[in-house]
Simulated scan of single mutants.
Amino acid sequence: MDILNKKNEYSRELYHDMKNHILCMKYDANIEKSNSYIEKVELLLEEYGNKFNTGNIILDTVLHEKNNLCLRNNITFTCDINFKNCSFMEDEDICSIFSNLLDNAIEACLKVEPSKRNIILKGLSMDSIFVAKLSNSTNNDINFKDNEFMTTKTNKLLHGIGLKSVKSTLKKYDGEILFDFDKNIFYTKILIPIP
């Protein structure tokens, strides 16, 4: 919560200073310098603007942080989640599920050329179940063996834990996770029953 409060404060300061930023850009005769200045301000606005409103502050914070990672790595991140009906879930479980899934998606995107990096996350409640669908670019370097994904990293003890954590957390809520992939896209779907 402290991190979110600090970011919100910085965001308010940035918006407050916007008039001065615009003045500086308006009267700078050097077009190239002005364009560079505009790009920096746009990136700051994008990074600190509150663009997530899922109905859960923990999920909003996770999405905000992962969006910043995407911005810094030229990954297009599209997100549309309504998580209001999932207040029964514990904060640490929400953080674990979405942080691990998005970290994996970002990691996969980094193996793809920048112009093709893309992550789409959508989620909503349907009847008495929350469904989230995540798709991300991939280079097709997927190691799937015995109905499990194997880490492609050299230190097997320290990696591959995130997905196991997601599965065990979902199990706590009688939820499940499904995967699919093709040549260029990896798909993840999570299903969580709403009590």
Rank of each mutant, 00 (worst) to 15 (best):
M1G: 14
M1P: 09
M1T: 14
K6D: 12
K6A: 13
K7M: 14
K7D: 11
K7Y: 07
N8F: 10
E9M: 14
S11M: 07
S11W: 01
Y15M: 08
M18V: 00
H21T: 05
M25P: 01
D28N: 09
L44F: 06
N50G: 15
N56L: 05
N56A: 05
T61G: 08
N68D: 13
T78E: 14
C79Q: 01
N85K: 08
S87V: 09
F88W: 00
M89D: 05
D91N: 13
E92H: 10
D93G: 02
I97R: 01
I97A: 02
F98R: 02
S99F: 08
S99G: 07
N100C: 07
A105G: 00
S115H: 10
K116R: 07
R117A: 03
N118L: 04
L121I: 01
L121V: 04
M126S: 12
S128F: 14
I129H: 09
S135E: 12
N136H: 02
I142Y: 07
N143M: 15
F149R: 03
K153D: 11
K153Q: 13
K153I: 09
T154K: 15
T154R: 15
T154Q: 12
G162N: 02
S165H: 13
T169W: 01
L170W: 01
L170K: 02
K171L: 10
K172N: 07
Y173I: 03
G175N: 04
E176G: 11
L178Y: 10
F179G: 04
D180Q: 12
D180S: 10
I192W: 01
I194H: 00
P195W: 09
